[in-house]
Design a protein around this nucleic acid. Structure first.
Lengths: 329, 329
DNA sequence: CTGTTAGCGCTTTCAC
DNA sequence: GTGAAAGCGCTAACAG
């Protein structure tokens, strides 16, 4: 078996509780003995048993993330950011690709300190809402009352986009996004689009709402091409539902030799740094990625310390104007 | 604090060890008392503490997977399959998106039963080879001597592809794949291509080796289009380095109205079921996904039980002929 | 069959 | 400062 605290104690000629203290760098141990113990420990190749440690301290220093099956640039970027932040507080981030319920069950089994649920895909979480002894944070829509939720107000973000375009004089505005699934997060964006358009007295006709099969680059590309090909019906502005779709749109725009923003204004959901690094820096709406990461991390940290957090953390989307939007010519 | 085995014992009027036995469904307990205990436990909302359980049993029933940063269809499919198999043996699969070393460290901290490393991206693992107390399995190339490795023999697979095409009479064969990174797994494919071509006396000229920026669909699409546009220099057969690239190629082929296999034969790396479900069922080479999943799972299970496994598990790639390849016309 | 007794490896009082 | 003792929640001999 592997070397334990007792073995080290015996070897160093001290009691095992002193070893424990030395290892935890307690001030109750002389520097001298501390040094000695640390040396012996290293020599013997001592590795702490974190299960035992956690059993008494009730802390695993681990956060579980329930990861939806499909990868999108924004989501991975978000998890990466959260991971970075949590690392600074010495937490490890672990992901599960299992279904929401069994993922939560697994994280309960290994007793993580908190669970983050991205139920980005089918909204099953809201309906089934499994039980968890471990504190849980949900990133999605806050129209349920079960677990604390971080809500990025996607509908409001799209409203911001519409308003911006209308103020620039656009009326023929098209929304390209994934509206094929039952994903409530995507539905919220579409709703925001239709409602805001209506509020300005504009009826959203069929060709102004383009459905892609999913949120990836190629879907965006082919849908966009279709929408832009017919020059007489071409919109003067487009709102994209995600970063990936915007990338697809830009490819199409490039191939068709359409000038941005003179012939077409583009605005996109997803307030991420990458948006500024595209061929044309793209005007965007949404809660800044870093802000979302900050808030989620903060709540996760609080939950890990068994602290109470508000049931809804509602984040305000922002509009960041870049060179892809201009007055209607 | 939460309810423990002792609380249940007190409530049920038995000793706590009897409760332990009842919970583990031991035959040493009467059905009657077992029933009673189970009831009381449920009423009290008893949840086992798996840390304590693991502390004595030395088993976490968890496998850690070190996940490379980029998602590719094949890799996710593979992990999904492994996950399914492990679940059947009551193991949970947990992923880490951290760098190889810190991921391994994290999995050691929470004491998983085994670690699987997909170091698909930069080959850092082979060079740095971190220490792990937990048994570790590496999925990649077996030219190192540090940890047991499952090797899918990617070079041999591409050889198979070349041979097949040559036997069909093709000579102007182009390989499309990701050769931009230092990923040794991709390099192996390219090497296999060049060597085998040479062995048939064919020199691989520049235009016969197309580099995509990465392995995704759009890269495949645009590279393929470029390669196929010039009709006079167009190859009679193409080998794709991955499923995603093949999908991209098929889009390009479709747009350019090229007939498969009459005008162009296509063969792809990645022996996965999805390959048969494309517009044109595509001839493929590689170790069948399910076979890889079977082997990896088997080794992982053995490692979890502290059993010895061979240092190299070399899997034989297969050729599966579908309708995308034919004799050169 | 059921209960008693030891631990698993560690942290944390509390004496010395 | 250091050590002895108790206990985290559970499993696994060992008695009865």
């Amino acid at each position: 078996m592997s070397v334990t605290i007792k073995d080290v104690a015996k070897q160093a000629g001290v009691s095992f509780s002193t070893v424990s203290k030395a290892l935890r760098n307690s001030p109750l141990v002389t520097e001298k003995t501390k040094k000695k113990i640390l040396n012996v420990a290293k020599e013997m190749g001592y590795q702490p048993n974190n299960l035992a440690r956690s059993l008494v301290s009730k802390k695993m220093w681990t956060i579980g993330v329930v990861w939806p099956s499909v990868e999108r640039v924004t989501l991975s970027a978000l998890i990466t950011q959260i991971n970075i932040r949590l690392e600074k507080y010495s937490y490890t981030t672990l992901l599960s690709i299992n279904k929401v319920e069994s993922a939560i069950e697994a994280f309960n089994r290994i007793q993580v300190d908190a669970i983050l649920v991205f139920d980005d895909l089918e909204g099953t979480f809201i309906n089934t809402a499994p039980i968890s002894n471990v504190p849980l944070l949900y990133y999605g829509i806050s129209d349920h009352q079960i677990y604390p939720t971080v809500d990025a107000n996607r509908g409001k973000a799209i409203s911001l986009a519409v308003e911006h375009l209308i103020h620039l004089g656009h009326e023929h505005i098209t929304y390209i996004g994934d509206v094929s699934t039952k994903d409530p997060l995507q539905e919220q964006k579409v709703e925001g689009f239709i409602k805001t358009m209506n509020s300005f007295g504009i009826t959203v006709k069929d060709h102004m709402l383009i459905r892609t099969n999913n949120m990836d680059l190629y879907s965006g590309y082919s849908s966009a091409k279709k929408a832009l090909l017919n020059e007489s019906e071409r919109p003067t502005a487009v709102i994209c539902g995600s970063y990936d779709i915007t990338r697809g749109l830009l490819r199409a725009v490039n191939e068709l030799n359409i000038n941005i923003p003179d012939e077409l204004s583009i605005i996109s959901y997803d307030h991420i740094p990458q948006m500024a690094e595209l061929n044309i820096p793209v005007t965007a709406v949404g809660v800044p990625l870093m802000t979302i990461a900050d808030y989620i991390t903060k709540q996760l940290l609080l939950l890990s310390e068994k602290k109470e957090i508000p049931n809804v953390i509602s984040l305000d989307p922002e509009l960041i104007i870049r060179s892809s939007t201009s007055n209607k010519r």
